[in-house]
Design a protein around this nucleic acid. Structure first.
Length: 560
RNA sequence: GCGCCCGUAGCUCAGUUGGAUAGAGCAACGGACUUCUAAUCCGUAGGUCGCAGGUUCGAGCCCUGCCGGGCGUGCCA
């Protein structure tokens, strides 16, 4: 039993192939069925779905594509309640036109499944760990982090709907040199605040939030300690405090943004458990390290990465890279089938390094899928704002959320493929907030909710039992039903490709169909039979909009 | 220099993993509210898919070489 239209067509094709060419199919297992490509047609002349299977297999079978298509067609078990007709076209495509009963049956399925419509029943698919955001706890989240958060969180939701067991994780870089710089930044700001002359180095964290933290400490016992203790002892106190407070702020911003991680994983905990040392020892015992110039190097063969990389500095301190190998080892040892890391695109050069690290420890590098999210260019007054946490010059996620709201921001981040640059024009986002595409989709939901409210006010019977769906005879009604039927397929493909933005575009297309339909056709008509059927249809639209928006982490409002 | 990503309408972007006549939204122009919400709808206009080759039944998508933009190429994280 499947909710995927394409799977049911694949099944028919497979049945036919198995009958026509038992030798070819017998040698394959049933997995071959998945290889059969079925796509939705762009042009209604070609039916609803098409397959190019005859074009693909013709060479291997020594047949002309159209002849092969004919054979496949002749042996296909066709059910008139599902497929209205089926024909060969062009160089050898097989086109399928579904029957109107089929669309109506699916419409009923939306009502039966409700908020599970589009969800995969099987829930024991491989476990996936998605790590994202993982912004350093050295400053508030900025807009770029917001994009990663929106993409990662929606991807997690999307994969869950398709039956994967998904956990989400934020890697907290609370160790190393940057924590010392963070601590010193706070210390200096504190000294400044209590009237000592300080010189604030350019490579320290300049943002105002450090001054605010210093202010927060004034008059507290910890503040006193920072003042009195020698720097050596004050530093760890300051950096711990700053790290903790900043992380709390990050968590609060994420909460507002609708992103809740299953786990925050501390880099420091890796050191506490000696995980870094153990990983290094293992690399050494596998012959992947080399001592040179006082440092320990990870030796790369040419195909892994272009040069060797330092694991332990001459100072004896492990690099970020060493900790990251230990971290990925830790994740893999927890038993996930797939690790997904969502990184800013500026880390792309790091991908082969981490994979090489995994391979060197005996793992399969393909278990790691790295999704690179391109930069967000923030534009104010028509000019790009350069952003850097250290310089303190950035626009925070919180500021953007205050301006445009979580729904608009999340939706906007998901209107682009993640590997293309995104211009976030603050003035535009503010000015356009009314006709932001998110409202176009949400408006569908509000309009339908409104129909049901009016029906209730007027004591119009709006129950969903036993509608006469033959009353849905308009072409635009069938178009809507087709789009609803495609929703599960779209989710499955978006999940497979790990492209949550496809959900956004699907919802926009459905919304377009609905708004046009709504404009031309009254749902609450006098005709009892038509009204009941239309209510049944629009309720299904509402449900699918809700299901889609839920995956995007956007609310589905009843009123706007 | 080398590596990764991007280049599609004036602008911002989709393009179902190589399918049939390249699509939306903004912006522009012209229309539609006595109606279940006009945050809507309908229409007009807009293209050498960066350029040049190649692969094949078929290329915006794959390969090669250029051009342009972004980012990497730290004993930073």
């Amino acid at each position: 039993m499947t909710d995927l239209v394409k799977d049911s067509i694949r099944n028919l094709i497979y049945e036919s192939l198995a009958k026509s060419f038992p030798a070819t199919c017998d040698s394959q297992d049933r997995a071959f069925e998945k290889e059969i490509e079925v796509s939705r047609t762009k042009d209604a002349r070609f039916g609803d779905y098409a397959t190019n299977i005859a074009l693909i297999l013709s060479k291997g079978l020594g047949l002309k594509p159209r002849d092969l298509a004919q054979t496949i067609l002749d042996n296909m078990p066709l059910d008139a309640a599902v497929i209205q007709n089926c024909e060969i076209a062009g160089p050898g495509f097989i086109n399928f036109r579904m029957s109107s009963e089929f669309w109506k049956k699916n419409l009923i399925a939306v009502h039966e499944r409700k908020n599970l419509y589009g969800h995969e029943d099987i829930t024991d698919k491989p476990g996936i760990l998605i790590e994202f955001v993982s912004a350093n706890p050295t400053g508030p989240l900025h807009v770029g982090h917001g994009r990663g958060a929106a993409v990662g969180d929606s991807l997690a939701r999307l994969l869950r709907t398709r039956g994967h067991k998904v956990e989400t994780e934020y890697y907290v870089n609370d160790a190393g040199n940057q924590m010392r710089i963070l601590g010193r930044s706070l210390l200096l700001r504190y000294h400044e605040l209590v009237g000592k002359a300080v010189e604030f180095p350019g490579d320290h964290y300049q943002g105002d939030y450090m001054k605010e933290l210093a202010h927060e400490l004034k008059g507290t016992p910890l503040g006193g300690q920072l003042e009195d203790l020698p720097e050596q002892e004050a530093l760890p106190l300051a950096s711990n405090y700053a790290c903790q407070r900043i992380l709390e702020g990050i968590q609060e911003d994420l909460r507002i943004f609708g992103v809740n991680f299953d786990r925050y994983f501390s880099e420091r905990s890796l050191y506490a458990e000696d995980a870094v040392t153990k990983a290094l020892d293992e690399l050494r015992s596998r012959g992947k390290t080399e001592d040179r110039e006082g440092a320990i190097w990870f030796t790369m063969s040419g195909e892994e990465d272009d040069k060797d990389r330092v694991l332990v500095r001459a100072s004896g301190e492990p690099t970020y890279f060493a900790a990251d190998i230990a971290y990925h080892k830790n994740k893999l040892d927890r038993g996930y089938d797939t690790l997904v890391d969502i990184w800013g695109s500026d880390h792309h050069g790091y991908v082969p390094r981490v994979k090489a690290g995994m391979e060197a420890l005996g793992y399969v590098p393909d278990q790691l899928r790295v999704m690179l999210v391109q930069f967000v260019n923030l534009i104010r007054d028509g000019r790009k704002i350069s952003m850097s946490t250290r310089s303190g010059e950035f626009v925070t996620l919180k500021e953007v959320l205050d301006e445009v709201g979580t729904d608009a921001a999340r939706f906007f981040f998901l209107t682009k493929r993640s590997d293309s640059h995104l211009d976030f024009d603050l003035d535009l986002a503010k000015r356009q907030s009314r006709d932001n595409p998110v409202y176009y989709v949400q408006y569908v939901h509000a309009r339908i909710a409104s129909i049901f409210r009016i029906a209730a006010e007027r004591n119009i019977n709006a129950d969903m039992t036993d509608p006469d769906l033959s009353a849905l005879d308009l072409p635009e009604e069938e178009e809507i039903m087709k789009r609803l039927a495609d929703f599960p397929d779209m989710l499955a493909e978006a999940a497979e490709a790990m492209e949550p933005h496809r959900v956004t575009f699907c919802l926009l297309e459905l919304s377009e169909l609905f708004h046009a339909y709504y404009h031309d056709n009254k749902v609450l008509t006098e005709d009892d039979r038509v009204r009941k059927a239309r209510l049944f249809l629009v309720e299904a639209v509402r449900q699918v909009i809700e299901n889609g928006l839920t995956i995007l982490g956007v609310t589905a409002p009843d009123r706007m």
